[in-house]
Design a binder for these strands. Structure first.
Lengths: 227, 227
DNA sequence: AAACAGGTTTAGATATGGCAAAATCCAGTT
DNA sequence: AACTGGATTTTGCCATATCTAAACCTGTTT
């Protein structure tokens, strides 16, 4: 009945699956399909199935065959702990080691699994126990609370919509670099000007610059809608 | 023919074995026995044998059955790269995150395997490209050079011998903590006062304090002999 | 109701690293 | 030269996490 965390009794793979299921559940409040999970983890559906069965055995998810998977409360806590590691590390690497923003995600991706609780606490303290990263993304608290604000894909917004560009799905570093080169970084306010049909390009204004964004890119960009 | 490093194509296990063989070869310039390696890695001799065969296949060691194992030049380079990661991380954690000295070893032990070359470079730069850690232990250069000074076990010194306590074998944190509580830290000058026979206690002077050290402890303490 | 197309799960295989038990080698006695 | 004890290797097994290929559901269309 303690808030004791199980993160150290789980493999990196289990942690990654929990994190992926959390992210996918987030997007649409519904069970996560094996295919979606496999796609996100970049493994075959067969691999996803067997890992899902393992997570189920560990009590981290409930799996209804052919119907998808949902995190249990312990599973959600695990995912949030890993996410806390990840976001603290991103912030820490960027702030104190000047790791470029389009690289911190990849570094954090591997470090998050080996970060001890002691180091986590020291890093959090060093950063002043932040609750949000510089993009506005919330950092889960040590006891597993977050206030995740709902985001939309830029692609699905109508002309006239305004919002704040929050992040790129999976922090794809190619996309982040491409956007950064054009002066677009997370945190930027934007307004959708126009959208061509048939998955055509989307015109959006950032500051006083209008940019044309292709389908895949606009789909990956997550926006907090403000009006 | 480049100085390109193979560290990222090897598993953590392979890296750990290379590091262990390097350390054991260091102590006595002789082939490393399977048993010694198994003891150091805390695995069975059977496991050590099969890993040795794998390292041999990778060209990292030369293994003569029943005769022990030695690092090849690529194997030595790999070991030194991991050691560089390890010592840079120890220094970094202690300096910038105030991780207590008796804990940095364990943290570095896992981080060393996932540290990217980019982060390594950034950390080294942040620390001013150090060549030695605060104890005087040399940090291998990026291109695989070290000047390792020969150390002796405190246990094997004769009364009257003087030296500098450099480190505890395997950085055993229990021992480091025990010694720190008594004011003995790496870097301390010492003189052996007396040694009782039959693996009896050893009397050594650190500053103006004489301490009595038991067999296992004295055996684990490595000393750079100065006179 | 039968068929079809996807998505999902099972079955069987692979690579890593580990262990225990059995077989084998080596060196130092008798 | 045979014996013997400790070190070493071989053999067969386990767990993790992945894959391919085959079998199996499910919902929709015919």
């Amino acid at each position: 009945m303690s808030t004791h965390s199980e993160i150290h009794e789980t493999s990196s793979a289990v942690q990654d699956y929990a994190k992926a299921i959390y992210a996918l559940e987030q997007r649409a409040d519904a069970p996560v399909s094996t295919n979606a999970l496999a796609g996100r983890m970049d493994v075959t559906a067969a691999s996803a199935t067997s890992m899902v069965k393992k997570l189920d055995g560990l009590g981290l998810v409930t799996h209804v065959p052919y119907r998808g998977v949902r995190l249990t409360e312990p599973g959600r806590r695990l995912a949030l702990e890993v996410l806390r590691h990840h976001r603290l590390l991103e912030l820490y690497l960027a702030e104190t080691l000047d790791v470029p923003w389009d690289r911190v995600h990849e570094e954090a991706e591997v470090l998050e699994h080996v970060l001890s609780e002691e180091l986590e606490a020291l890093i959090a303290a060093k950063l002043g126990n932040p609750t949000h990263d510089p993009h506005g993304d919330p950092i889960p608290s040590p006891d597993g609370h977050v206030e995740e604000l709902a985001t939309s894909s830029l692609q699905e917004l109508q002309p006239g919509a305004r919002g704040v560009f929050v992040r790129v799905s999976d922090s794809d570093s190619e996309m982040l670099r491409y956007l950064a080169e054009r002066g677009i970084t997370p945190g930027a306010a934007l307004e959708v000007i126009d959208r061509q049909p048939f998955d055509g390009p989307l015109f959006a204004r950032f500051g006083d610059q209008v940019h044309v964004l292709g389908g895949d890119l606009a789909r990956a960009m997550r926006v907090e809608v403000t009006g």
